[in-house]
Simulated assay, not measured.
Amino acid sequence: MGTPLPADYKRIVQAYGGGLFAGTLWLLAPGYPDAMYDLVAQTAEREEILDGLWEAGEERPRELEDRDVRLVPWGFDEGAGHFLYWLVRPDVEPEEWTVILNEGRGPLWEATPVSCSRFLLDVVAGTTTSFYFSDLDDMVDPERRYRFVPNAEILG
């Protein structure tokens, strides 16, 4: 991928692996056999998709105006299609990367200046400032709300 990954992300993947948090948020993990859930495969796929959208005239978010900035996906909401990325800047350490969400079925972007682990914790705890996960209690069965389910259990 050409870039180091944040230590908090590596700790989460080491402890849990890829899988589903809070009944809605998939954490990508490197090396997963299914490309949809593999960090490396999704990085290449999302770069291609976004490049195509921008070439077709979709407006880039202001956070991406500097051409040295790169997006690396780390998670997604399968139902809504939202993708979560790290906003990777060459002069910023991985632990300082901003989480930026791309609306799944639209052109909107939302930046949250937190780590991926903080973002996940805030979503699970119901304390997120993200517009896209603020009504999680209305969308997710309470039985699944505070659970993590590994890819192997869901996908076999």
Rank of each mutant, 00 (worst) to 15 (best):
T98A: 04
E78R: 15
A44K: 03
E103K: 05
F148M: 08
E78I: 06
T3E: 08
L108R: 09
E78A: 14
R70C: 05
E45C: 15
F76D: 04
R60D: 15
D68W: 09
A29V: 03
L27V: 02
L20T: 02
D38A: 02
W26F: 11
L101H: 00
E65F: 11
W54Y: 13
P142C: 12
P150I: 02
K10E: 12
F119Y: 12
D141N: 14
E59V: 10
D91H: 08
A22W: 00
A35F: 12
S117I: 07
E93C: 08
W109Y: 10
A41M: 13
E110W: 04
F119M: 07
W86Q: 03
E63I: 06
D138C: 04
F21K: 14
G2N: 14
V72T: 12
G79K: 03
P73I: 06
E78V: 14
E58K: 14
F148P: 01
V69T: 01
Y37Q: 03
R70W: 03
S117K: 08
M36E: 15
D68P: 01
E65H: 15
G23A: 06
L120V: 05
A80M: 14
E110Q: 11
Q42K: 10
S134Y: 01
D137C: 07
E78H: 15
A125Q: 13
G23D: 03
R145W: 14
T129Q: 05
V140L: 08
T129G: 15
I100G: 02
G79N: 13
D122N: 09
A152M: 07
P90C: 01
M139E: 09
E95Y: 05
R89H: 04
R11N: 11
P107M: 03
T43W: 10
D51L: 06
